[in-house]
Simulated assay, not measured.
Amino acid sequence: MKKITMADVAQMANVSKSTVSQYLNHRYEYMSGDTRARIEEAIATLGYRPNILARSLKQKKTSTIGVIVANILHMFSTQVIRAIEDVCSSEDINVIVCNADDNPEKEKKYIEMLRAKQVDGLVVFPTGDNLELYESMKKEKYPLIFVDRMVKGMNIPSVLLDNETASEMAVDHLYSRGYRRIAMLTTPLDKGITPRVERVEGYKKALKERSLIVPPGYIKGVKLTDMQNVLEEMFNQPEVPEALFSGNDLTLLEILKFVKKKGMSIPRDLALISIDEVSFSEIYEPSLTIISQPAFEMGKYAAEKLLEQIRSNAKPDPMNVRFSPSIVVRKST
């Protein structure tokens, strides 16, 4: 079959090739409704498909960005991706999403793959271990935004939660309800992942300000697969926690499994509060008190700032933008 070209569309619609090009690039300012209708009908009749690769080479843009998340299972990650996609869809920008599983090798592979595909910029939830790769993109002035995490020594624009305030908010709420033995469980701290470390620091700071002592075994940062054993140890101590602060949504699920297994009653046997809203928090019985991240606002902001970088071709000013958490008080505390 003969390949249908822009010239064929122009001939059928009785317009110039440049008018068809303007139509395909959504530049309708000086185009009549009748002209648009003829071009649209010609495209449909001929089955014309624009050569995206050729257009990308000509414009030096692919109208595509990449998003590399650390762990797509987190509700926060899903919400941020949705917000990024909403912004990009409204701007006719395509989004490719990759899941790094907190694995530096996977992250490196995805960055190299997306750059080979000539995506116009990247939103990355960084593992923190690919310093040379981050640095090379920074030197090239390649459009790049970090979300949820900072990387020490890298002056790359980052969008984060005010994590210490989030933890202080959780402790303050539990304290105001009369709880004094407050424990915290989260995912591993050994890699220095920003939100995990900052949330633990905020928790410690809040307890200190209230003259509360943290007994040994009350702060744990471990793999999800080890959490059931850690919770067994935590609740076999002479003084068991009255309240438990979960560092994220996946940790919360492990805590709820443990509570069900042990036949514990929330909040009678254990008060529970978590960072990150989850889909079932209102319908769980009892409903769950949550420190909520403004994930959609954070994703929207990250997307808008990345698109600004892409359009201006200018090196961005290093910045760390912190979004404020909020508390949603329900029955688990």
Rank of each mutant, 00 (worst) to 15 (best):
S246V: 05
L231T: 10
S265H: 05
A303R: 02
D226V: 11
L250D: 15
V230F: 02
L253E: 13
F296C: 14
G221Y: 03
L256Q: 10
E232K: 09
V259E: 04
V278D: 04
S281L: 01
L252S: 11
Y284W: 11
S281G: 10
L231R: 10
A243V: 04
F245A: 07
E285P: 00
Y284M: 05
L288D: 02
P294F: 02
K300I: 00
M227W: 12
K305Y: 13
Y301T: 08
E304P: 03
E239I: 06
Y218S: 01
M298P: 07
I266Q: 02
I273Q: 13
L256G: 11
L307M: 01
A295K: 12
P241L: 09
E233I: 03
E239S: 10
V278G: 03
A295R: 09
A303D: 09
L307C: 00
K260Y: 08
R268P: 00
M227T: 12
K261F: 11
L252N: 03
F296Y: 15
S246C: 13
D276M: 03
K257D: 15
I219Y: 07
K305E: 15
K305P: 04
M264W: 12
D276E: 13
P286G: 04
S287R: 09
F235T: 01
A303S: 09
L256W: 08
L306M: 03
K261V: 11
T289R: 03
Q293M: 14
A302F: 06
P294E: 09
K300P: 00
L244N: 01
F245L: 14
L307G: 01
I283N: 06
